[in-house]
Amino acid sequence: MHIVLTGRKAIVTGSTAGIGRGTAEGLARAGAAVVVNGRGNARVDEAVRQIRDAVPGGDVSGVAADLSTMEGVEALVAQVPDADILVNNVGTAHLRPYAGIEDIAAIPDADWLGLFHLNVMSGVRASRHYLPRMVRKGWGRVVFVSSESAVNTPKEMLDYGMTKTAQLAVSRGLAEAVAGTGVTVNAVLPGPTRSEILGNLMARQARDQGITQEEAEQAFLASLRPTSLLGRFATTQEVANMIVYACSDQASATSGAALRVEGGVVRFVA
Results as ranks from 00 to 15, higher is better:
V124M: 07
D208T: 12
V269I: 12
A222Y: 04
A246E: 11
A28C: 12
M134L: 09
D45V: 04
N241V: 06
N119W: 07
D111K: 07
A10S: 04
E46K: 13
T254E: 07
V135T: 14
G140S: 08
N200P: 02
G138I: 11
I85N: 00
N37M: 05
D45I: 05
D111P: 00
A126N: 06
M242I: 14
V77A: 08
G72I: 10
T92D: 13
S223V: 13
R49L: 13
S255R: 01
G18S: 02
G100K: 11
N186H: 03
L118V: 09
G58K: 05
G26M: 03
A33T: 09
A219I: 12
L168H: 08
M70F: 05
L189E: 08
A42Y: 09
K164E: 06
Y130S: 00
M134E: 03
V265F: 03
V12S: 01
A150I: 03
W112L: 07
V48C: 06
E102G: 15
A166V: 01
P226I: 10
A47P: 00
S61M: 13
D59I: 00
S68D: 07
A47W: 12
M121D: 04
P81F: 03
S248Y: 04
Q79D: 13
V188K: 01
Q167S: 06
A83N: 01
S171K: 04
T227P: 03
N200F: 05
A234P: 10
Y245D: 00
A75D: 14
V55H: 10
A177W: 11
V87R: 02
L67D: 00
R29L: 11
V239K: 06
R125T: 01
K164R: 15
E214M: 02
T16L: 05
Q79K: 15
A234Y: 08
H117W: 11
E238H: 12
V12N: 01
I11P: 01
D208P: 07
Q250S: 14
R204V: 15
G62C: 03
G31N: 09
L230R: 14
D111G: 02
A258G: 05
A105C: 10
L198Y: 12
A222E: 13
A175Y: 02
L174Q: 03
N41E: 15
R207L: 14
A179K: 13
R49F: 09
R39C: 08
V120D: 00
I3Q: 05
T254H: 09
P190C: 04
F116D: 00
G31H: 09
N200I: 06
A99W: 12
V55F: 11
S252Y: 07
R225W: 08
A47G: 04
L76Y: 03
M162N: 09
D249Q: 10
I197R: 10
A64E: 07
H2W: 02
A83G: 01
G138V: 07
L86I: 04
A78W: 08
D159R: 07
Q79F: 05
A32T: 00
K164Y: 08
V183T: 06
A78G: 14
R96I: 12
D103A: 06
P108Y: 11
R8M: 11
G140Y: 06
R125Q: 02
S248Q: 08
E74A: 13
G100Q: 12
L198S: 07
L201P: 01
G191A: 10
K137A: 15
R21C: 04
N37W: 03
E215F: 03
P154T: 14
E74T: 13
E46T: 12
V183H: 09
